[in-house]
Design a protein around this nucleic acid. Sequence first.
RNA 1: GGCGCCUUGGCGGAGUGGUUACGCAGCGGCCUGCAAAGCCGUAGACACGGGUUCGAAUCCCGUAGGCGCCUCCA
Length: 477
Amino acid sequence: MTLRLYDSKARALTDFTPMVPGKVGVYVCGPTVQSSPHIGHLRSALVYDLLRRWLSYSGYAVTFVRNVTDIDDKILINAAESAFTPNPEEWWALAYRVELEFTAAYNAIGVMPPTYEPRATASIPEMQAIIARLIEAGHAYATDDGTGDVYFDTASWADYGELTHQKAEDMAPAADSESRGKKDVRDFALWKGHKEGEPETAAWVSPWGRGRPGWHIECSAMSTKYLGTQFDIHGGGLDLRFPHHENELAQSRAAGDAFANYWMHNGLVSVTGQKMSKSLGNSIFASELIASARPVVLRYYLGAAHYRSNLEYHDGALEEAEAAVSRIEGFLDRAERRLAGTRFAGTSELVIPQEFRDAMDDDLSVPQAIAVIHETVRTGNAALDDEDFAEAATLLGQVLAMTEVLGINPLAPEWAGASGGEAERALGTLVERLVSDRETARKSRDFTTADRIRDELGQAGISIEDTPSGAHWSLDG
RNA sequence: GGCGCCUUGGCGGAGUGGUUACGCAGCGGCCUGCAAAGCCGUAGACACGGGUUCGAAUCCCGUAGGCGCCUCCA
């Protein structure tokens, strides 16, 4: 079975065929670094991280580009507003600080660094080149009102609306009072002339006067700069379909580029039934999430729903994810302990079951893929109960392989907390001593003492499990 | 007004024209000194009304409710 993806332009599941056999170019719209990352940003990044990992696992050489839009209206506004706070910040400092926050959040949940992460401000000449081609082709115009603005001429492009299947005349006219020079309310800015009061550092020389790029043009420039004028997959959040992606597509195609072959859009995250928004004050920030759950649990939670589904965040969701991850972790841990010292230790082969492969190939059906993991965990636990170590070793390898591909192997080194070193060793020594005392008490059938020790450890956040090979202790998750 | 999406058991969340997704929580059992973990078993669902069909939760139409985009947004 080959990979099928839902192409939101075609509005259908389609077989994925790369332009060049064995190679895939993916462009994903990264954040506009205007304020701190929230749960939606994490989900979006994770979705394409899973896509990228699955493509890589499937044997493709993946060039994965995710941009950072580090110049736009909001960044300038937020920086300007900071002038009235105790910590005033230049727009470029704000953008960079926020970009670092994003990087930290991505790293925290195991989103792999992209092949390249271009910043919009580093591709101004490429943007200008596209704008020049558009003007040349009659699809863009510089206004004559002295603003230095350049707009895309939507009326000149018959296919405008092809991505979201809307007719231009049906679109609600946007009351864009500031743009007097527009020929049509649907025309969008390619270049914004420098305005009085805006930072000099936010203006670049151009044939149409000093100014800065409009929103949308940066992605046309960066995607084609690094992936070519035609490339395989373009992804982003569902809320970017219109106008952002529609406009990207229009300007790139009008400029003569074939652009993306497949369009993917991930579902949004909602809170209490509604999309997060600043005005509602219901944003769940990445920092809050990272503080309230283990990173691997967060990754599991954000990835567990299908990427095109809306994901509803609610209280208790992370606890449920923690329980699910603990179950997987429990099997891996138990299997490795039980197999240690047998001839099956270390013999597990990292094999991915066909069912898992089929699920992932079917438009990245992660929920079904995870179901396969859980089923394998169950049969693996049963094999351990039956002391069928050959079978257990096989299933252990499968679970490891599947969780590795999704980046949710709880025992993987990347999730290991900062090891306490000496403190950890000291704790271990003390606990081992108590566990040993308890074993002695149990052997002499002094269960009062044994239970007291277990209770005391429990109150300290340490749980005890009695197994055929002795007691096992662990810190509560 | 236009373009779309959603409504599944206590919760989360898949899927699909005819067979238990999966996880969490619940109940019964096995195991255990008792637990924990694990295993086995079990209950419970497809918003509502029509239609197509041998058969629909799954396709079509309608109704109700909810959501997204059309304005900055992952």
